[in-house]
């Protein structure tokens, strides 16, 4: 999948506290590193941990002026698969656009569950992060998959941005574990 309109538009579905905003901001900053224009903003309801949230991300080669929420996404990211039961995550997605889900399930299972004929890319971001980082950090791990599928930015830019934000916060060793997990999610088929 590549750009097919002026602005690449993404929606993240997650639950409050899962770090979708952080994930969107890392991608946005990575795009800025590449000289692109970005916009990332959350759609908060009442701010509370665990409630369904939507976060929007736009990336473009030209300045972005609109402030409207994304209604016609090119890709949708679902960080918490329990949302598949309660949120219409495929709204606005056509069969050529991508649904990326953090799950152990197969694409066929999700396609059947959602009755969605478009492209589905499952990634076990929880599993990968538990295995490599030792903690559930699906929001950063899934970045690898998003970059692989959407080609919105280069993987190196995401890793550079991740290191910039997190190395001082979580230490070099932990940071590199996260980087390895992002790379694994990128390489996972």
């Amino acid at each position: 999948m590549k750009y097919h309109k002026d602005i690449l538009e993404i929606i993240f579905h997650a639950r409050g506290g899962q770090g979708a905003k952080t994930a969107a901001e890392i991608l946005a900053q990575a795009a800025v590193l590449e000289g692109k224009f970005v916009q990332a903003f959350p759609s908060f309801g009442p701010e509370r941990s665990g409630a369904p949230t939507k976060t929007y991300l736009r990336i473009s080669d030209k300045a972005i002026r609109t402030k409207e929420p994304v209604i016609d996404p090119d890709a949708v990211i679902v960080l918490d698969e329990t949302l598949l039961d309660s949120v219409k995550v495929t709204d606005g997605l056509d069969k050529n656009e991508a649904l990326i889900v953090n799950t152990k399930k197969s694409a066929a299972d999700i396609s059947h569950k959602l009755n969605f004929k478009g492209k589905i890319y499952p990634v076990d971001a929880n599993g990968i992060s538990l295995e490599i980082i030792g903690q559930p950090r699906p929001n950063t791990v899934i970045l690898g998959k998003i970059v692989k599928i959407t080609e919105m930015v280069k993987l190196e830019s995401v890793l550079a941005e991740f290191r910039k934000i997190f190395e001082a916060k979580i230490g070099k060793e932990n940071c590199e574990k996260n980087v390895a997990a992002i790379e694994k999610a990128y390489d996972t088929v």
Binding site: A24, E25, A28, Q29, V32, F37, V38, Q39, A40, F41, P42, F44, A63, I64, K67
Partner: peptide, 12 residues
């Protein structure tokens, strides 16, 4: 600035 629309939106 507009609350959330601008205060919480990452832009160039």
């Amino acid at each position: 600035m507009d609350g959330f629309n601008t205060s919480h939106s990452v832009e160039n």
